[in-house]
Simulated scan of single mutants.
Amino acid sequence: MEVRDPISAPDAHGRPRRVTRRFPLFTRDTARPEGGGRAASLDAPAPARQWPLLAVLITVGVGLLVTALDAFRVGLLLIGAGLLGGAVLRWLLPRVGMLAVRSRFTDIVTYGVLGVAIVLLALMAQPRPWLEIPFLDDALHFTVQNS
């Protein structure tokens, strides 16, 4: 059996294929994001291969459950911590499986900003906020007072 290089193989009409550096007119496939390979070897079971994503999803799921059980602040802190944990995993690990959605930088910024925003909003939630930021408090009173 002869193995051919797909670039130098002839086209459907038997003519030699030209090697070009241009992007194709129509995309036939999607490139996997950087770091989107399996987090464990192929012989490991499916959940073990995607453990970074499962860790984030389980943390967020527990946070949603705690929020539903009427401890909203602790639940939201868990959700934010799960997203921040996803950002840390995406930063530290070379392969994170399906946790990789876009480029490493974009994923870290997205997970990090959403995680920090959720944690800060949970800490500032009324009644009896655990954290008070005067600038944000003034902005809230200004918008509520003038509407």
Score class of each variant (00 low, 15 high):
Ile58Gln: 03
Val88His: 02
Pro33Tyr: 01
Ile58Asp: 07
Ala87Lys: 00
Leu89Gly: 02
Leu89Cys: 05
Arg15Asn: 14
Ala39Val: 02
Gly36Thr: 05
Phe26Cys: 09
Leu64Phe: 13
Ala31Glu: 15
Val74Met: 10
Phe26Ile: 14
Phe26Ala: 14
Pro24Cys: 09
Val19Asn: 07
Val56Ile: 05
Glu34Ile: 11
Val88Tyr: 01
Ile7Val: 14
Gly75Gln: 04
Pro45Trp: 03
His13Phe: 10
Gly36Tyr: 01
Gly37Ala: 14
Leu57Asp: 07
Val19Asp: 12
Leu53Asp: 00
Leu69Thr: 13
Leu92Val: 13
Gln50Ser: 10
Gly35Asp: 01
Gly63Asn: 02
Gly36Val: 06
Ser8Val: 14
Ala12Gln: 13
Pro10Met: 07
Gly82Lys: 02
Gly82Tyr: 01
Ala71Val: 11
Leu65Gln: 12
Gly14Phe: 05
Pro10Ile: 05
Arg18Val: 15
Ser8Trp: 11
Thr30Gly: 08
Pro52Thr: 05
Arg49Cys: 06
Ala40Trp: 08
Val19Phe: 11
Leu84Val: 12
Ala40Ser: 11
Leu65Asp: 12
Leu25Phe: 10
Thr67Tyr: 08
Asp70Leu: 09
Leu65Ile: 14
Gly37Ser: 11
Pro45Phe: 06
Ala71Tyr: 11
Pro33His: 04
Val62Asp: 05
Ile79Phe: 06
Arg73Gln: 11
Ala48Met: 12
Ala81Asp: 05
Pro10Trp: 02
